[in-house]
Design a protein around this nucleic acid. Sequence first.
DNA 1: TTGCTTTTGCAATACGATTGCAAAAAGAAT
DNA 2: ATTCTTTTTGCAATCGTATTGCAAAAGCAA
Lengths: 133, 133
Amino acid sequence: MNFENTLKNSGLRVTQPRIAILKFFNASNRSYSLPELEEKLKVNMDRATIYRNLLSLHKNGILHQVKDSNGVNKYIQTKRDIAGNHAHFICLNCGKLECLNNMLINTPNLPEGYVLKRQEYLVEGQCGHCANL
Amino acid sequence: MNFENTLKNSGLRVTQPRIAILKFFNASNRSYSLPELEEKLKVNMDRATIYRNLLSLHKNGILHQVKDSNGVNKYIQTKRDIAGNHAHFICLNCGKLECLNNMLINTPNLPEGYVLKRQEYLVEGQCGHCANL
DNA sequence: TTGCTTTTGCAATACGATTGCAAAAAGAAT
DNA sequence: ATTCTTTTTGCAATCGTATTGCAAAAGCAA
């Protein structure tokens, strides 16, 4: 499916900034923060535009959003073969974010009367490439 | 053990701000962020003082530090009966942070060649008290 | 009490996240 | 193609938490 359809299917208008963002993520397999994207795309669009599009693309399931250990949001293209809760890995060196598909998170065993809203299992370290530098 | 000894054992000088901070945490079983502590303690000390003391108390294992889902650092008194990696629960309503001692995290199964640096399993929801309001 | 080291208080700054608003662009209706 | 309505963009401002430089104050050992 092309970028235009991706947007249309989510009820989003097809705009230049959005196409550029989708194209950018599609050409990369790592994650980016808003400041990083700003740097990469700033000749083409404003920070607020990127920001708001990251939000809506995430809300529509097109981008995956994970906070790194500094509390900074990182975005990566959602892979469609992932279901259920899973852990995330972020490479502290290159910033690559991976979904650890083999680490499914089972529903946590909370004390009696507690209500679960969300959970996030973040693993950080060095990916295979960066560990060998 | 009293607050003075706690500090001395970590090689930290015994100062009024530190005693006040330890006393404050000791009287509460929930977690606080820097802004929250600022509010509670600002008549007595400066924000930078609180900030730097939270860092050193955390570095010395006296306080536990966990980022909530907004990326804000929360601090809570370290309970000495906790060993190993465990999940953390934060109540979205009252802010209470709990160590889920029954949820020990086993070493994640990373792909070949990856290096693990740190991990954090955060669970958010409502605690038993807040769920019944 | 002296002298050295650590800590504090104040002020400034860094930095990512977020918003208001008018102009521009997209898309539906005609 | 033109008009009209709604969404989106760009710019600038602002928010909130985190962080730092530096001189003065406090802690502590000799």
